[in-house]
Design a protein around this nucleic acid. Structure first.
Lengths: 150, 150
DNA sequence: CCTATTAAAGACAAATATATCTTTAATATT
DNA sequence: AATATTAAAGATATATTTGTCTTTAATAGG
């Protein structure tokens, strides 16, 4: 559904929403372990989200790390997807046509048109803080379970 | 949503459902033009779908080409996706977790769970023959419009 | 049988996505 | 000021996807 980059970004942000604050920043080592993602690659992804768009903040040096402000925690996954420029599910055509619209629809257009707003709702309804708070239930996780690294 | 390979395959199959039969086969040149896809790459994709799974048939030599049997035309896009092994939207987790289930759900699981069956329905309800027949309406297309090849 | 036409097969190339490693800059602590 | 710690930046490596090209095999028609 999404690229690895996007998946890691979403998981990282949910983790940061849950664990970080201005007072308590999270290092990339802890973060990557917590969401079960490749560390350096995840660092790159987060870097992109600290520049320009005020989604993720970071501070170098001891006690430094990544964190979300309360404002950032109020954003939705859809907001994040927009910043990641990975909105294909929302804007794209099932069959990959560049210009699939009411005027020139693909054969699946009318069907997908009914599902798209639900996907959009799903991604837009909850703030990442709300998603993170679901993780108080220990069954709900954002890492791969039962797979140990060698 | 899908890979290019999958998109080309779906478009090709819809075109073949519309235009081909045992009596009238379609050459790769016509097909690739009709669905606006790279010719050789599309040929590869179709080759994979002629082997084993009886979805697409082909014949070499003059008057040869690709075609669908009436039986094949009765399959759904979901059937095709299964043959293409590109069912991620159906089976996968939004956040990319390997084991996202009722027992260990991701924070988006309960939300996506409600949309997944609708996506599945969308892909399973219509036969590709039915999708193809929608194209009697000239507004409905499976090629990129207004983009001319150099 | 010969030729033209078509897909099959396989080698190759280019682009993109994913991942790692090293060096640099910032900063907290001493 | 010196040191340790952390992310930033950049170079590089690997894998996968996408795309092209050439050669081979099959087959229809003369």
């Amino acid at each position: 559904m999404f690229s690895k980059s996007t998946e890691y970004a979403l998981r990282a942000i949910i983790y940061l929403a849950q664990k970080s604050s201005v007072e308590h920043k999270i290092g990339i080592t802890e973060l990557a372990q917590a969401i079960d993602s490749p560390k350096s690659f995840t660092a790159k992804i987060l870097q992109n989200l600290t520049r320009g768009n005020n989604l993720i903040n970071s501070v170098t040096g001891p006690t430094g790390g990544f964190y979300l402000t309360d404002q950032a925690k109020k954003k939705s996954l859809l907001n994040v997807l927009t910043l990641l420029e990975d909105e294909g599910i929302i804007t794209g055509c099932i069959l990959g046509l560049k210009e699939c619209s009411e005027k020139n629809p693909c054969p699946m257009h009318s069907e997908y048109k009914q599902i798209k707003p639900q996907l959009l709702d799903m991604l837009d309804q909850k703030t990442i803080a709300e998603l993170a708070s679901e993780m108080k239930d220990p069954r709900i996780v954002i890492h791969n379970i039962g797979k140990k690294k060698v």
